[in-house]
Design a protein around this nucleic acid. Structure first.
Lengths: 349, 349
DNA sequence: GGCTTTGATGTTAGCGCTAACAAAAACAGC
DNA sequence: GCTGTTTTTGTTAGCGCTAACATCAAAGCC
């Protein structure tokens, strides 16, 4: 019933300019949130944009900006539950900023990282985003520095003082989860540590220990080493549960290990959460796959990726204007997700 | 020691043209595998490309191609293990074809699909890729047809005769897995069906049944309904295992359900694969997360996505040239991945 | 009032690539 | 040799957008 014909011809900046009675340049300025535009003009442009349903052509923008807004992303494990969320966020951020995302896979060893970074730089990336495992890699960061491109690490403490980072407050999150368990009445709480070489592991442990120490009559010494894998969680859980006085709750440093604990508990015929509460960390897809669904801490993975992209683009811009750079660290809010794997401590315990 | 200075200046098509002593257009033709180029010229260009490390600027290409190569992708669950592989493949395909990928999230209901498709079309997508859940959606396909954009469904049988599809041979894969179990000596094999409204479910069941019927003295009637969730697998597995003569192997239609079966088996204190073999389907990340790792069927998810992008771009091109279109169905090879959850049937059984 | 300073907008040119057409080279037939 | 065809290559123009500069108006100052 309406005008359907001009399907193919997408609205361009010139159409908007004409409709708003200004020059294309002014539209461009409005679209990019540039300051020097009068409010009345800005509104007129906005209105035209709305009416015509204009959205900038990102290819043209990237081209005109002369390769600024080309951001690299290194990833390693394409089947890790969290990569898709990460990619979605990064893509969103890139889209919003009008940048192009170059994506490169690599193994988690220095050689492979080096090669991948080389490709990214050759492809014109002005900066690179390093998600979790690579964020810990000193060699990757050095490599990037040598190539003269910016870097933003995600999900890790700052390794180097000259690189920016986006992360959550692992310490506070672990403390919150511990408090959640304490409030449910648990007094013997087991903890399974993550891989020793990752900063997040240490932070999470610290959060747990601090909270435990603040609580009063609480058993200690219920800490086992894990390495973020299901199997390590299974085994650590088994050790904890075969103690003379087994814990009534176990807090694992990530979801995979928590699911391992769940398996160990089921194997012993324990009811979860009736006899044992289990908590994880990360809220990856496995947390809602298993049954009962896992109480865990959610990282805003998409937001983190989006933020990382934006920071990177800003940094590239800043760097281009003047040799100066000002590494930032941004902390995003996490959330305690209470599902069915935690409940009140068993009676008479 | 070498020339390091011109970091920023990426090699352009003109540099290559100059180096090879031809015009930029010829280089473009070579890069795009165009036919009408003399072999000697092509080689010269190739050599220059190699030496200079040239790679085309995808933004410029997309711009010059006038928005052809703008491909939409609908996704629903960003934490589903397979989305990241899918995205990676799609991104690769888009990159290779010099296309831009527009990505839009939506819920699996018709309303939401409609809105997302609208956005994609408004964004200039000439075609849309429909991964698994949406591929089954008749309404989504109608919507796309109405908007006049091409569509490629992934991981499903062809719903409509006028849409292209990329998939694996679910029937053959299920048959292979069944044969694998039979060869291990199993004679009582349980099967857990997938959600009834998905074509893949039916195909997989058919593959299983066909192979079972071909084998000689084999128990039948060991089929339970599931819906692709962990919990449904857990419950179906429990039902199968509480039979008077429980199966010695269970083949679930996807990995999530297989992991559910694994939990049910562990709860009963059964050793896997000593007393019970378990097989899954899809090879998602959970298959290697659990222990023992799952024997399963791998779908080449990345390749499928990449293929889908390429098919779509071809179809868009074909459509633009002449109103004509020729929906294709491409079948990609799957692979039987034997891990630790399947083993020889228990003795004396 | 004539002057600079500031702010808001318009102009010009070009990012790197590829359609579409134009030209040149290679080949055929007589 | 010359025309008519078929390859192969080059030319022109422009995709949609934005730096960088140019312009014009309003404001501030002596």
């Amino acid at each position: 019933m309406a005008e359907q014909r001009k399907r193919k011809q997408v609205v361009t900046i010139d159409d908007v300019a004409k409709a708003a009675g200004v020059s294309p340049m002014t539209v461009s300025r409005v679209m990019n949130g540039f300051s020097g535009v009068k409010d009345t003009t800005r509104e007129a442009v906005m209105k035209a944009v709305e009416e015509l349903g204009y959205s900038p052509n990102i290819a043209a923008r990237s081209l005109a900006r002369h390769g600024s807004g080309r951001v690299g992303l290194l990833y390693s494990n394409p089947s890790a539950g969290y990569l898709s969320q990460f990619l979605v966020g990064a893509l969103d951020g890139a889209q919003a900023a009008g940048a192009l995302l170059l994506i490169e896979k690599c193994a988690p060893d220095p050689e492979s990282e080096k090669a991948a970074i080389g490709k990214l730089v050759a492809g014109g990336a002005g900066g690179v985003i390093l998600p979790s495992p690579h964020a810990e890699s000193y060699s990757a960061q050095s490599e990037l520095k040598a190539a003269g491109v910016a870097a933003v690490a995600v999900s890790t403490g700052r390794l180097r003082s000259d690189a920016s980072a986006v992360r959550i407050d692992d310490f506070a999150a672990a403390a919150e989860m511990t408090r959640h368990l304490l409030e449910l009445g648990h007094r013997r709480i087991g903890f399974i540590k993550g891989a020793p070489n990752q900063t997040a592991s240490a932070e999470r442990l610290l959060g747990f220990e601090t909270e435990i120490r603040n609580a009063e009559p609480v058993a200690s010494g219920l800490i086992e080493q894990g390495d973020f894998t299901y199997r390590s969680g299974f085994e650590a859980g088994d050790r904890l549960l075969s103690a003379h006085q087994p814990p009534t709750a176990i807090f694992a440093s990530n979801d995979d290990m928590a699911v391992g604990v769940l398996a160990a508990a089921h194997r012993r015929g324990l009811d979860v959460p009736g006899q044992l509460s289990i908590a994880g960390f990360d809220d990856t897809s496995i947390a809602t796959t298993v049954w009962p669904e896992l109480t865990t801490v959610r990282q805003p993975v998409s937001d983190m990726a989006e933020t990382a992209v934006k920071m990177l683009i800003e940094e590239i811009g800043a760097r281009r204007r003047k040799g100066d750079r000002d590494p930032a660290e941004r902390m995003l809010p996490h959330a305690l997700i209470v599902r069915d794997s935690t409940g009140p401590a068993p009676k008479g315990d």
